[in-house]
């Protein structure tokens, strides 16, 4: 048994760490997530032969990552996460009173060329880090951890309307940030 776990860590530890790092963006949190995954894996060894060990471990890790994200969100006061008055103001920033775009969205696309693409992605990453905390939290749950809306609402104790308004605001802000900061060539 213990041999198994050591093998798992040797064979899949690096991959699991990268998987966690890609989502948590923090080396210490990513290390913790791998550790929690391994502990859970030996505790309830529910591995069934029909999936690969890596797939199985990654499944456990996904849950651990969402758990950690939840804790981070819970540590913030709810009022800090939900701020609908402010959201209404910013939503209006993009449109005039008749619902027309104030600044029409500009065309941009992800570059194919490797160097350009990595520049584009680092702009996108920077834009995401700039989102207000509360918007970033819900945006991460939905668009990075790919959690279902229903579960997000339960988790944050918000209504579906709150959820879509916040997601809308986050996406609006992100694409505007990209538009302003991604200048080709």
């Amino acid at each position: 048994m213990s041999n198994n776990v050591n093998d798992w860590l040797n064979d899949h530890g690096d991959y699991l760490y990268r998987f966690a790092l890609a989502r948590l963006k923090d080396t210490h949190q990513a290390e913790d997530a791998v550790q929690e995954t391994m502990l859970a894996a030996i505790k309830n060894n529910s591995f069934e032969g029909d999936s690969s060990i890596r797939t199985w471990l990654t499944g456990i890790l996904k849950h651990k990552i969402i758990d950690m994200q939840r804790k981070l969100i819970r540590e913030q006061p709810v009022s800090d996460i939900i701020d609908l008055d402010a959201s209404n103001e910013s939503m209006d920033d993009f449109f005039d009173k008749t619902g027309h775009w104030l600044d029409k969205p500009q065309f941009f696309d992800m570059p194919d060329h490797a160097l350009e693409q990595s520049q584009f992605l680092s702009v996108l990453d920077a834009c995401m880090q700039k989102l207000p905390k509360k918007l970033k939290a819900i945006f991460m749950l939905r668009d990075v951890h790919e959690m279902e809306n229903e579960n997000i609402c339960k988790e944050l104790d918000i209504t579906p309307t709150n959820a879509w308004v916040m997601l809308y605001r986050a996406r609006m802000g992100l694409r505007k940030c990209l538009e302003m900061n991604w200048v080709k060539g």
């Binding site: 696309d109 996108l124 694409r175």
Partner: peptide
């Protein structure tokens, strides 16, 4: 264009993740 922007956004975020996963 707005719809396209949101698509690019999501594709880009996924790409950032897979780049780290495969590095």
């Amino acid at each position: 264009r707005f719809r396209k922007q949101l698509n690019v956004l999501l594709v880009g975020l996924r790409k950032i993740r897979t780049n780290i996963e495969n590095d």
